[in-house]
């Protein structure tokens, strides 16, 4: 009787191993051949056809193509569960809108790692201060979004660009205001300052009567 139990356990063990392994194999087989593919050969292949796409958007040529170009026209045909569109709140590389910036320094103050550097001067005909320096160091940025959250005029915002790889990290430090514009603004501010000082002096001169000796 005991021997029979041993034999039974032996064969049960073999049966169980074979049954559970073939069950797992069946799931692998089913997934590999009958289920929809969810992976995508980024960025070189078309999602549906699985063939290389236009060479201009791969390594050579345009280094920062728009995201839509990467996915190609056939993205509408993709029926998998994953998003092929970037969502509205996507946090890509930081963008900067110069005309609306008031140089309030909130973005620079709220950055935990001093990615943003802003300097501004007061010039005529512009709300707030006009920026003379606006530098973003993309190599440090950790895309936390604290600067975008506090910006009162939406001058700092997230773009949908996410391909920032370069061969030289110095290219990741980006000046958004050209040196010429910066110089021009500085001169304008200097002139305005001088002008204001003159005006002030004139007014003071008028107000205080001159004392003769």
């Amino acid at each position: 009787m005991k021997l029979f139990d041993h034999i039974k356990a032996y064969f049960l063990n073999i049966y169980e191993a074979v049954a559970t392994i073939s069950m797992g194999m069946w799931i692998t087989f089913k997934t590999a051949f009958f289920e929809r593919k969810v992976t995508l050969q980024y960025p070189s292949h078309d999602i549906i056809e699985g063939k290389p796409k236009d060479a201009s958007i791969t390594t050579q040529g345009n280094l920062n193509p728009p995201f839509e170009a990467l996915l190609g026209a056939s993205q509408q045909n993709y029926k998998g569960p994953l998003n092929t569109q970037l969502p509205e709140r996507y946090r890509g590389l930081l963008g900067y809108d110069e005309p609306s910036c008031i140089s309030c320094l909130l973005c620079a103050l709220n950055c935990p790692i001093d990615v943003i550097r802003v300097k501004g001067v007061k010039i005529e005909g512009r709300k707030g201060k006009a920026p003379t320096t606006f530098r973003i160091d993309y190599s440090k940025c950790m895309f936390c979004g604290l600067c975008v959250e506090v910006c009162p005029t939406d001058a700092v915002f997230f773009t949908r660009q996410f391909e920032g790889a370069t061969f030289d990290y110095r290219t990741l430090i980006r000046e958004f205001i050209s040196p010429e514009l910066s110089l021009e603004r500085m001169q304008l501010a200097e002139e305005a300052k001088k002008h204001a000082e003159k005006e002030k002096k004139k007014r003071e001169d008028k107000e205080t009567p001159e004392v003769g000796d």
Partner: peptide, 30 residues
Amino acid sequence: EWVNDLFEELCGARLTYNYIRFGGVAFDLP
């Protein structure tokens, strides 16, 4: 990946979310 897509829709990031703030969350549910 599916959940990562959901999170990306919610807060814009797939791994380092920085979503919760003192006194609430950064964005409402889309």
